[in-house]
Design a protein around this nucleic acid. Structure first.
Lengths: 142, 142
DNA sequence: TATTATATATATTATCCAATACAGTTAAAG
DNA sequence: CTTTAACTGTATTGGATAATATATATAATA
């Protein structure tokens, strides 16, 4: 299990570099994003940039899929279980307003992150950072 | 969504009757059990008997699989998220001893329910009863 | 006791889906 | 500029898997 909290969340790697680090094709990384599992940074011209956190998240998600046999829908649902506005100090007004918790297996950062500002908030959210692997998820439930 | 709490948990239906009620083949019901998703009663001679709760649970699980696109591993993991010994008044010593929460996506009633007494306890457990559909699960997390 | 239903176990099927490959366009880098 | 990398979108594939079928044995029932 990889603990993402200690890792940097700074945009460091292009998709090519990230895919090499992970041993996954760039298309897979784009697929993970399209499926609402990760939320990589973007440059001004829409190029993806991955942080160490993102890389670890992808790795963990890949483990969930490969080792635990979970499919994408499962990961999405698991990542959507924790209500960030119950945990965050700022109550995460945007996400609560969007009632993301009640949406069906859509992580709030997918629903809320339509514009860049929301995306940036969600990307640094404790829920987004910790709800990557099952261990972190269970810790938050605890 | 079907709320299971109000339903009876008495062994009422044979597998044939239950499968007719659900529109599923008897084999599917056995499959759900083998996959650790349900825990039907048994007669002295090992015949399965299903309660209204069990029927509702199967229906909900089937919805998760059909509508939400979750696979069995996903349902198992979701049903394993809530630690019953944190919720139950009796602390559910057996389950905590078995450290079921840390086991990989194995609901505690699968791990704990090797003997009939444990099975019966688990079958009436609030966690087993409520962690059938995603709504009940989220309520418990709340 | 004869018939029907259920039990376990294994084999098969038919679909789904994660991952990859391809095609055409746009941005970055040397 | 020329080359390389990344972008979006669509098409394909290989493996997993939910569900069914088959076979044999045991229990319930009429």
């Amino acid at each position: 299990m990889i603990f993402v909290q200690a890792l940097s969340n700074k945009p460091l790697y292009t998709i090519g570099v990230a895919s090499e680090l992970l041993g996954l094709s760039p298309h897979s990384l784009r697929l993970y994003e399209r499926e609402g599992l990760i939320l990589p940074h973007r440059t001004a011209t829409k190029r993806r940039l991955y942080s160490d956190v993102e890389v670890a998240k992808v790795k963990n998600i890949h483990l969930m899929v490969q080792d635990k046999g979970l499919n994408f829908a499962a990961v999405r649902h698991l990542l959507s279980l924790i209500p960030c506005w119950k945990i965050r100090a700022d109550n995460c007004v945007k996400c609560r307003q969007l009632n993301a918790f009640l949406q069906d297996g859509q992580p709030c950062w997918v629903t809320a992150g339509k514009n860049k500002r929301n995306r940036d908030v969600c990307r640094d959210c404790r829920v987004y950072l910790n709800s990557t692997d099952l261990g972190g998820l269970k810790e938050m439930i605890y």
